[in-house]
Design a protein around this nucleic acid. Structure first.
Lengths: 152, 152
DNA sequence: TTACTTGCAAACGGTTTGCATCGAG
DNA sequence: CTCGATGCAAACCGTTTGCAAGTAA
């Protein structure tokens, strides 16, 4: 799978039964990134998170933030999507084990996780109809949330 | 609209009745880019197109290719989508006037344009349900096309 | 001590821009 | 003649990487 939707990779850091898996160490900076992530309700860029961390007084290198986000994203603990400019945005995942999509506010980023069984079915049938195999898909909704609508 | 789906902008270059619209000139290089685009069946990056142009002996600057693609994309004559790495990919649009999505082969790029009225409806209802306004969405399907499936 | 981690700065790769020159109308 | 278009090189910007120093286990 060439991953074209928010990350739900579901590999785990390292099962004890995993032969050649590097040990993932819970360091101070990884905890810091996770906390910063937890403090946000919406999708943020790696750089945003780095700024947040810096303001809190946590000294974490930007590269480490990138590396950690990648890690969390791969493990399915955070969702990643790309905005229209192609930048990666991250957000703690509300339903890590379930396939889902997002309804994101264009103005403030407020996000709702949504599921659409019908869409998933449609996806599969379209693919089958054209003989395509091994299907994955991107699906994100963008709009203006109630709060932002009322304040304009 | 913050555009989150293949471009269907439908502005026109410049209506004669348009007051402050710059004249869009049909130059040699713009024609060249359009032709290169026409020669492809699938989504290609700006750089790919530039290479193609160069190989054909057309001397067009990379910047011009980018500028032209942006132009064509804005006018709805070409579709643009981003691959998982966030790079922009372009393809001549088969149904410029209709809202649609794509089923793209991960291996060879072969693309089918598809419509999904049900999905569009679902999108709107989900948005309404959560009070979101002014909705747009991204939806692309990726898989392996019949030809590539059989040759592996 | 042995890996894995981090920070920093340099490298990257796609895309955009400033500016002098070119060319379509 | 004018104003948009082009080419080139430099600037941008998000992201990745090499490497020496730091730190869990």
């Amino acid at each position: 799978m060439t991953s074209t939707e928010p990350t739900h990779g579901h590999r785990h850091g390292s099962g004890p039964g995993d032969p050649a898996a590097p040990t993932v160490r819970p360091t101070k900076q990884r905890r810091a990134v996770a906390e910063a992530l937890a403090s946000f309700e919406d999708f943020r860029s790696a750089q945003d998170i780095h700024v947040q961390l810096t303001q809190r007084g946590e000294k974490v290198g930007l590269a480490t933030v990138y590396r950690t986000l990648q890690l969390l994203s791969d493990s399915g603990e955070v969702d990643m999507l790309r905005n229209e400019d192609g930048e990666a945005l991250y957000r703690r995942c509300g339903m890590p084990s379930r396939h889902h999509h997002h309804l994101v506010c264009r103005q403030c980023g407020a996000t709702v996780e949504v599921e659409g069984p019908a869409v998933e079915r449609w996806t599969r049938s379209i693919a089958a109809e054209h003989g395509y195999d091994d299907i994955s898909h991107t699906l994100e909704l963008f709009g203006v949330c109630p709060r932002c609508v009322s304040s304009r």
